[in-house]
C-alpha cells in the first residue's frame, strides 16, 4: 500500500462513512425517542434519491427546489407512516412495532417499484464532475457535498437538540418518556417529530448520495443495514456518536479492500467490517448491558 493509495482509501472511506452516518442518524433519532429500530429508514433514503431524479428530469424543476421538495416529501411520508402505522398500533410491543416498520419498508419499496419501474436512475451532480486532486488522491465534488452535508446536518441537529425548546423536549423524551410526560411533554408529538425528522435526514442522505451511487427501488434494504450498523457502533446515542460510528465503518470497509493478506481479498470487506462491529460490541458489552437494563 503506497502513501497515495492510503490517502485514497481514507478519502473514499470518509465518503462512504458519511453516507452510512447520514442513514444511521435516522435510526438514532427514532430509537432514542421511541426505542423502535426503524427498518424503513433505508426506504426514506431511496425515496429521497428517486424523488430528486424524477422531480429534476421528469417534472423539470430546477436543482435546488427539487432537492428541497424531495426532502420535504420524504419527511411527510415519515410522518404519515408514524400516524397511520405506528400510532394506530396502541397495544403493540416494541418488537411488534419493529415488524410494522418492516411491513412499511416492503410497502414503500413495492410502491416505488410499481410507480417508477425497476431501472436504476442517477440524478445530475450538484456541481460539475471534474474531480479534485488532494494529497495524491482524487476526490469528486459530489463526495465533498456528501461529507459537507453530513457535517452540516450533524451540527444543526446538535444545536437543535441543545438550544431549542422542541429539541430539548425530544432529548427529555429520549432520557425518560414517563418523566417527560410528567412535565407536560407529549411523547406522541415527540415521536411524530422524531419520525419526520429521521425521514427528512434519510431523504437528505438520498438526495446527496444518489448522483454518485445511482438509485433503484430496491436499494433501501442494504443502505438501511449499513446505517443500522453505523448507529449501533455509535451506540444509538448522540448524533455525533453516530457520525463517528458511520465514519469508522466506512474507513474500515475501505481499508479492508487494501488488505492483501493471503486469501482475504476485497470479497471479505463486509465480513471484516462486521467482525470489527462484533468486537466493539463485545468489548463494550458490560456498559451496554447496564444501559439497556436502565432503559
Amino acid at each position: 500500500m503506497s502513501a497515495d493509495q492510503f490517502v485514497q482509501y481514507l478519502v473514499s472511506g470518509l465518503t462512504m462513512g458519511s453516507i452510512y452516518a447520514l442513514i444511521g442518524l435516522g435510526f438514532t433519532i427514532i430509537y432514542a425517542v421511541t426505542r423502535i429500530i426503524n427498518f424503513a429508514q433505508g426506504e426514506f433514503v431511496m425515496l429521497g434519491g428517486m424523488l430528486s431524479f424524477y422531480l429534476i428530469s421528469a417534472a423539470g424543476i430546477p436543482l435546488a427546489p427539487a432537492l428541497i421538495l424531495s426532502v420535504l416529501i420524504a419527511a411527510a411520508i415519515g410522518a404519515i407512516m408514524y400516524i397511520f402505522a405506528i400510532r394506530t398500533a396502541r397495544r403493540a410491543s416494541v418488537v411488534s412495532l419493529i415488524i410494522i416498520t418492516i411491513g412499511a419498508a416492503i410497502f414503500i419499496r413495492g410502491i416505488a417499484g410499481v410507480g417508477w419501474g425497476v431501472e436504476h436512475v442517477r440524478p445530475p451532480y450538484f456541481t460539475g464532475s471534474e474531480s479534485i486532486s488532494l494529497l495524491g488522491a482524487y476526490i469528486h465534488p459530489q463526495a465533498l457535498w456528501i461529507i459537507g452535508t453530513t457535517l452540516v446536518v450533524v451540527v444543526l441537529l446538535h444545536l437543535f437538540l441543545s438550544y431549542t425548546m422542541v429539541g430539548k423536549a425530544l432529548k427529555a423524551c429520549a432520557i425518560s418518556p414517563v418523566a417527560a410526560g410528567m412535565v407536560g411533554i407529549n411523547p406522541r408529538a415527540m415521536a411524530l417529530i422524531a419520525f419526520a425528522l429521521a425521514a427528512a435526514i434519510g431523504g437528505i442522505g438520498g438526495v446527496v448520495m444518489a448522483p454518485s451511487i445511482s438509485m433503484d427501488f430496491n436499494d433501501g434494504f442494504k443502505l438501511g443495514l449499513m446505517g443500522f450498523v453505523a448507529a449501533s457502533i455509535g451506540g444509538f446515542k448522540s448524533p455525533i456518536a453516530t457520525v463517528i460510528g458511520g465514519l469508522t465503518l466506512g474507513i474500515v470497509v475501505s481499508l479492508a479492500v487494501g488488505v492483501d493478506w493471503g486469501p482475504f481479498t476485497s470479497a471479505y470487506k463486509d465480513a471484516i467490517a462486521m467482525m470489527v462491529l462484533l468486537l466493539i460490541l463485545i468489548i463494550r458489552s458490560g456498559r451496554l448491558s447496564a444501559e439497556e437494563r436502565e432503559s
Binding site: 410494522i100 411491513g103 416492503i106 410497502f107 419499496r109 413495492g110 417499484g113
Partner: peptide, 9 residues
C-alpha cells in the same frame, strides 16, 4: 410486495 407489506402492517 405492495400488498404483502400492507398485510404485514
Amino acid at each position: 410486495i405492495v400488498i404483502y407489506g400492507l398485510i404485514l402492517m
